[in-house]
Amino acid sequence: MLLRDPTSLLLDWRFVVNTHTNHIWNQQFLITADRMETFLAANLTRPPFLVLSVWSKIYRSFGENDKFMFSFATWFVAIATYWITNLALLYVDITGKPKFLSRYKVQKDKNAPLDPKLLPKVFRTVFMNMMVVLPVVFYATCLMSVWRGMSCGYDVPSLPRILLDLAVAVVCEEILFYYSHRLIHHPYLYKSIHKKHHEWTAPIGLVSVYAHPIEFVVSNALPLFAGPFLMKSHLMTLWIWTVIALSGTSIHHSGYHFPFMLSPEFHDFHHLKFNYNYGLLGFLDRLHGTDSLFRKSKAFKRHKVLFGFTPVSVSIPDENEFNRKKAH
């Protein structure tokens, strides 16, 4: 009987162990990959269970009436978003409370506090647009949604599809708003239509829809709904987008540069100077050179999301304020 070299036996033992270990690891990898595939399929190609459950309850509560949901219910989402956001901002404008929020005012010498005598005219126009014009717009939306084959039922979209639809909605709104807004700055159209909105050189949240009805439809409503119509978005996505867009335009007009919120500096500058910054995001203004004066201003340096509680007017002070502090 031949005796094998101990070193050879040791190598054979290591081979067996390593083969067995690799087999176990391969099995574990396949199990993990299968679980990951199942997780991704469940979370990326299908809506989360909670979202589907909540939407199903909403859909059933409206009697599964698609026309009612696309018209009245969508209108209610819009006006609820507008009034909740802007009544809160209006309270701050009129009372100046809480006092620390006044530190975030963009134009500190304007509407601080707001004169209540200015409000009746605003309320009349806002009421006309939100309570008379907008329901007609949403009825037209309902008819077009049926024509486009948009759904509001149980086929809730996946998260990637919602994000894609929202991204397209943002781009469509920017394009349509920029060019329609620039069009109504034509001298003839400005005088007869758009001048009303520019009565406020230091805007407040309420005046986001303080506009001539033609402007309200062409430059506000149409850009808002273009993206969802193009993408045949589910009604749930349209509601999400409506909340984002209306609260966003209220912040753009608020006159406050609050922490962790969208910067209003870009659109506030438009109300101050009129013929600059026609868009919302700014990339078309950059393309067409309609942000030239803004880019030279202090507002441009302040135009960013504020990640902190120090107001941008303090961290980036005006020249006069800077010289005054330096003198002291």
Rank of each mutant, 00 (worst) to 15 (best):
A169Y: 05
Y188N: 04
L189M: 13
Y188Q: 09
E173Q: 08
Y188M: 10
E173A: 08
Y210Q: 04
L189C: 09
L176A: 09
V171C: 07
P203V: 07
V218Q: 03
V171D: 02
F216T: 09
Y179G: 03
H185K: 09
P203S: 10
H197D: 03
L176C: 10
V217C: 08
Y210T: 03
P203D: 12
A211H: 00
Y190I: 11
H197F: 02
S233Y: 08
S219K: 05
G205K: 00
F229V: 03
C172I: 01
I175P: 01
P203L: 09
L224A: 12
G227H: 02
R182S: 10
E174W: 01
W200L: 07
W200M: 11
A202M: 05
F216N: 11
Y178T: 06
E199D: 13
H181L: 09
L224F: 09
L206Y: 06
V168K: 09
P203R: 07
P187A: 00
K191F: 05
A169N: 13
P213C: 10
H181E: 14
A202S: 15
E215Q: 15
Y178V: 03
Y179I: 00
K191M: 12
V168L: 10
G205N: 01
A169W: 03
V171P: 02
I175S: 02
M231N: 12
N220K: 14
K191W: 12
H186P: 01
H181M: 08
H212C: 12
A211T: 08
H181I: 07
I184W: 08
P187N: 00
V209H: 07
A221E: 05
M231T: 15
A221R: 04
W200Q: 11
S208L: 03
G205Y: 04
Y178A: 01
V170Y: 08
L224H: 10
E215V: 11
H197N: 06
V217K: 06
C172L: 13
I204V: 15
P228V: 01
S208F: 02
H212N: 15
V170E: 10
F229D: 04
I175D: 01
L224E: 06
H198G: 09
V207P: 00
F225W: 15
N220A: 13
A221P: 00
K195W: 05
V217P: 07
Y210C: 03
H212L: 09
P228Y: 02
L230S: 07
H212P: 07
H185V: 13
L189G: 08
I193L: 15
C172K: 02
N220R: 14
A169M: 06
K195Y: 07
E174G: 11
Y179P: 04
P228T: 01
A221C: 14
Y179C: 01
S180H: 12
H234D: 06
V217R: 08
R182C: 10
V218N: 05
H234K: 03
N220S: 14
E199P: 00
V209Y: 04
E215F: 13
Y178D: 04
S208H: 01
F177R: 13
V170W: 07
H197V: 00
A221H: 13
V207A: 01
M231K: 09
H185L: 12
L224Q: 08
K195N: 06
K191S: 15
L224C: 06
Y188D: 06
